[in-house]
């Protein structure tokens, strides 16, 4: 298996580079704007998944035993694509083609050869797909594990909970879901708009094993993601800050999908490099 395993220090350094890539991509997206803040909240989650947890083989990206990662909150591509570029799925330069017409990284496409196991985007679309994938993986005795990242506000979609019920019912202990708990949706704070309350308790009440961690703490992420559940699916509630790492973007709802100008770009890069 051709794949680097990064230690925690290396992952921290990778996160910094990923944030810088994210700013480059946001700048390149120009007037179309990019989903900046929701990407910055899950940088560490993506870095730990691709840097330390997922099994994959860079010499054969379609290797049958690779772990299956399915992205929910799929607009967070400024975190997802840099993680794969950093780990060698494609050259970092490819990130410059983000959102180019008919490009490799445009829109939401199913492209297994670059690690896109599904194209969901419409919120709440991926959980049922993931449950189907995990069921057939068990029935056909596959070695791989199935991972899925969801947004906390995405869990306002009822279809997500339909599938949470099924995952527990079918005892899918080959499934780990990470919920990016950044407490924000497009219109603002989730607890003011549509309170999600204690998501760990909810998952446990639905028959899942669950844990709540600091989603920016590399060590906690590595530990939580290394755990393999027994007889139950597993949900990691990762508490994060939307826009993490750039002061004027953090917890600022106007940055859900926004245009980054040159001045803002320079300030963001400076803050990320210092941070």
């Amino acid at each position: 298996m051709n794949r680097k395993r990064l230690n925690e220090e290396e992952i921290k350094a990778m996160c910094k580079r990923m944030r810088l890539h994210a700013m480059d991509m946001a700048l390149a997206a120009g007037s179309r704007g990019a989903h900046v803040s929701g990407s910055l909240s899950c940088i560490e989650i993506y870095a730990v998944l691709y840097g330390a947890i997922l099994n994959y083989d860079l010499d054969n990206l379609l290797w049958n035993d690779r772990d299956r990662f399915i992205a929910g909150k799929e607009h967070a591509r400024l975190a997802e694509f840099p993680a794969r570029a950093e780990m060698g799925f494609y050259p970092v330069e490819v990130l410059n083609s983000f959102e180019e017409n008919d490009g490799l990284l445009v829109g939401h496409q199913l492209k297994r050869e670059i690690g896109n196991e599904y194209g969901s985007m419409s919120l709440g679309m991926e959980m049922s797909f993931v449950v189907g994938k995990a069921i057939i993986a068990k029935q056909t005795q596959q070695k791989y594990h199935v991972y899925c990242l969801l947004g906390d506000a995405e869990c306002e979609e009822g279809s997500v909970w339909e599938s949470f019920i099924s995952a527990a019912h079918y005892k899918l202990d080959n499934l780990t879901v990470i919920i990016d708990r950044n407490y924000m949706s497009v219109d603002g704070n989730t607890e003011e708009l549509m309170a999600q309350l204690d998501m760990q308790k909810k998952m446990e009440a639905f028959g899942w094993e669950s844990v709540t961690i600091d989603g920016h703490d590399i060590h906690q992420l590595v530990e939580a993601l290394s755990h393999k559940p027994q007889g139950k699916p597993y949900a990691i509630v990762a508490k994060t800050v939307k826009g993490k790492g750039v002061s004027f973007i953090e917890n600022n709802r106007s940055w859900h999908q926004s245009v980054l100008n040159e001045n803002q770009y320079r300030q963001a890069v400076e803050e990320i490099q210092k941070g």
Binding site: G132, K133, I135
Partner: peptide, 14 residues
């Protein structure tokens, strides 16, 4: 849960 049913079907076939 018909939405989930169709999504699960896709996952099973994927």
């Amino acid at each position: 849960s018909e939405q989930s049913m169709v999504g699960i079907a896709a996952g099973l076939s994927s």
